[in-house]
Amino acid sequence: MLADRMQQSGLKRPPGRAEAQIFHLSFPADALSVRGALRAALARFLRQMTPDEAGTLELILAEVLNNIVEHSYADSGHGTITLSMVRDRRGLSCSVSDDGVPLPVDCLTRADDDTDRPHPESLPEGGFGWFLIRDLAEDLGYRRENGRNLLAFRLPLQPQA
């Protein structure tokens, strides 16, 4: 549909790339809906990524979305998550928003400090999420605006042949 509209409006596509550019989805904040959203988002961009890049994207998105289900909406099963992704020349630009409780300020800053990283010897069962996001995503940013959480990040992708 996007392709039709682009043709109708006379927009030129970059040569050699007849691929998806945009993904946008709102879905309920529960674990099974997160699965469905991941499947849909991955399917949209799969042909533009290496298997390794696809694995990285799915992991970052899963950690971000699961955090929202479990913490922002406190596993209530209520609430909506909105995921938007845009493909540009350098990779994927992603933004995620929800109406849950504010993200604790130390979630992002603490992940900067390696001393807070869960130690394997202590057999941690959690606390990995933000470190994984931090390790894998670029330009990670957070803003609280009008009662909404807005999280944005980028995933660089190898230039396509």
Binding site: G55, L59, A62, E63, N66, E125, G126, F128
Partner: peptide
């Protein structure tokens, strides 16, 4: 596919 919840579950089993 394994996420940090899945990883935590494996650790919990051990």
């Amino acid at each position: 596919f394994l996420d940090s919840s899945g990883l935590g579950a494996v650790v919990a089993v051990m």
